[in-house]
Simulated scan of single mutants.
Amino acid sequence: MTVALASGGRDHFGWGVDRHMQADIFDAINSNTRATGQWGKGKAPKIPPWPRPKVSKKPETKKTKPARRVSVAEIYSQFTTRR
């Protein structure tokens, strides 16, 4: 679920490499069928691609200066200090 949420939302749950490859193979077979089929005088039918989850693009933020690097010692001190 963490990978799905990082990829763009709950729609991506279950979409691993294997599912993406299967969808690509499905689209490739349909494309090959359209290209090599004998459709007579008519045009080749439009075969819809396999439905995939939409990738949400993160909005670009303008940074005035690059972020400061944080050392391991600073991270450790933040975890060990009591507030």
Rank of each mutant, 00 (worst) to 15 (best):
Q78S: 14
W15T: 04
V72H: 09
V70P: 04
R10E: 04
K54F: 00
N30C: 12
S31P: 04
E60F: 09
P48F: 00
I75K: 15
R52H: 02
P51C: 05
S77F: 12
K46Q: 06
M21P: 01
T61D: 06
F13H: 06
P59K: 13
N32F: 13
G37S: 09
T80K: 12
S7L: 07
W50C: 01
L5Q: 08
T2C: 03
A4G: 12
F79A: 15
E74I: 06
P59L: 14
F79L: 13
I47W: 00
F26L: 03
T80S: 14
A73C: 07
R68G: 01
P59E: 13
K62I: 09
G14R: 11
S56W: 08
N32Q: 13
Q22C: 06
F26C: 05
D11S: 05
R19F: 02
F13A: 09
G14I: 04
K54E: 07
A73V: 13
S77K: 15
G42L: 14
T80P: 03
W39L: 03
W50I: 00
R69H: 05
D11F: 00
V70A: 04
Y76C: 14
K63M: 08
Y76R: 14
N32L: 10
W15F: 05
K43S: 14
A28N: 13
D11A: 05
W15Q: 05
N30I: 08
E74F: 11
A73F: 10
M21L: 13
A4R: 10
R19Q: 13
T81E: 15
R83C: 10
D18W: 04
G14E: 06
A35L: 15
K63Q: 10
K62G: 00
D18V: 12
P66G: 04
K58I: 09
F26N: 10
G14S: 08
R52Y: 00
G8K: 06
D11L: 02
T36L: 11
P49I: 00
I47E: 00
K54D: 06
A6G: 01
L5Y: 05
A67Y: 03
K58C: 06
G9C: 01
S56R: 12
I29D: 07
R83L: 10
V3W: 10
I29Y: 14
S71K: 06
F26Y: 11
H20E: 14
D11V: 00
A35D: 13
R69Y: 03
K54A: 02
T64I: 08
A44P: 13
V70I: 15
F13C: 05
T64P: 00
D11W: 00
T61M: 08
K65H: 04
G9I: 03
I47G: 00
S56H: 14
K65C: 06
I29M: 15
Y76G: 12
D27L: 08
D11P: 02
S7V: 01
K63I: 07
A73W: 04
W15S: 03
V72D: 11
A73Q: 15
I25D: 07
T81V: 15
W39A: 02
A35Y: 05
G9D: 00
K63V: 10
G40Q: 07
T2A: 11
A4E: 08
